[in-house]
């Protein structure tokens, strides 16, 4: 269990982490989600005692990191995959770490096998690819068989196979009852791996909640309706106090109504429906709504959808929006704006 209380870090005048309170519990993959520069790495360095908090504190299993007797047996961390001496072999790198914490040296070969690096274990890590370096970092994290694991942006620069491998590894570690804390600025990655979320923006903790709860609390599900008579059905639905948005292709997004209700209205008035599908909001939508004005960095595109997707109640009795809203922005991500079809 990782517990932060009022954790704050200032670099000069810049506040990197601002009174962060959160708890990371065992048995889950807890995603640490926030855009670049939000303070994720700084928080993780403070957890590991590398950076000293300006104020507040953070404990692992109830103790501050430097007080841990054999820290690698209690916390495994992957901060930066390149944090190894390039002239030292992978095996020797792990041997140094094992010895420093009184970990039996046979464990070195176990973790090398676990991450699939046996064949290059004797080679200097200078020649390692990014993926191999990442695996070596993970081997080091697993060395002490620790109950708490932390990974800072572990999938950055990995190929799809490596990403899948890490994702499964983290899930398995959590399933074994361990505490798994993984940071990412990639929405899709978080949506696939984490079941609990700590969301950070500009150093502030914006949410500390379950993945589903987070999405439900911060984005609304809606129903996608396709009909050749959108121009007629749309105003009819809007007249019932349901918020209606029109897509460029004349598809309607209806908020505040169930598919059954919409289907009934359409049938009562004799409209043809070509599609009627409930849409679950995506993590991305929820995130954008929450952080709309805390996000510092966007990979292009407008900061948030223009009209109609505010978190306020749908405009009562409002007509159709004048123009279709621009597609929601993406944060270097492959999720499309409409979320997952349920």
């Amino acid at each position: 269990m990782i517990q932060a209380r009022g954790l704050t870090k200032r670099y000069g005048h810049r506040t990197a982490v601002d009174h962060a309170d959160f708890t990371v519990r065992p048995g889950h993959v807890t995603g640490f989600l926030g855009p670049n520069g939000a303070g994720k790495s700084t928080t993780m360095r403070m957890i590991l005692g590398l950076d000293r908090p300006t104020s507040g504190d953070v404990t692992v299993g109830g103790r501050r990191y430097p007080e841990l007797g054999a820290p690698l047996r209690e916390v495994g961390a992957l901060l930066d995959a390149k944090a190894v001496h390039p002239g030292r072999s992978a095996r020797n790198h792990l041997r140094c770490l094992a010895q420093s914490n009184g970990i039996p040296e046979r464990r070195v070969d176990e973790v090398l096998a676990l991450v699939g690096l046996e064949s290059v274990a004797g080679k200097p890590s200078r020649g390692f690819s990014l993926g191999m370096g990442q695996r070596l970092g993970i081997a080091a994290a697993l060395l002490g068989d620790p109950p708490v694991l932390m990974f800072d942006e572990p999938v950055n620069g990995l190929d799809p196979e490596g990403i899948l491998w890490i994702r499964n590894l983290m899930r398995n570690l959590a399933a074994e009852g361990r505490t798994v804390f993984v940071s990412s600025h990639l929405m899709s990655e978080m949506a696939l791996t984490a079941d609990h979320l700590v969301v950070i923006g500009r150093g502030r903790i914006l949410a500390d909640t379950g993945m589903r709860d987070f999405i439900d609390a911060n984005a609304t599900s809606h129903v996608l309706v396709r009909t050749p008579q959108a121009g007629h059905l749309g105003p009819l639905l809007a007249a019932r106090d349901w918020r209606v948005e029109v897509e460029a292709d004349q598809a309607l997004r209806v908020y505040g109504a169930s598919a059954d209700q919409i289907g009934d209205v359409a049938a009562d008035h004799g409209f043809r429906l070509h599609e009627l599908s409930p849409v679950q909001p995506s993590l991305e939508e929820a995130f954008m709504q929450l952080t709309g004005d805390t996000v510092e960095y966007h990979a292009g595109g407008p900061a948030r959808p223009a009209a109609g997707s505010g978190d306020g109640p749908p405009a009562a009795g409002g007509g159709l929006p004048q123009a279709p809203p621009p597609p929601p922005p993406t944060i270097g991500d492959d999720l499309h704006g409409g979320g997952h079809r349920a």
Binding site: P26, V60, A70, L114, E176
Partner: peptide, 28 residues
Amino acid sequence: MSTATTATAGTAEPDPGRPRASFADVLR
């Protein structure tokens, strides 16, 4: 990916009774 991380049964929280690394370990 196997899950064989020599599962320490019921790994939950650090046990204060776990061994401490000695200065000799660090020297080595």
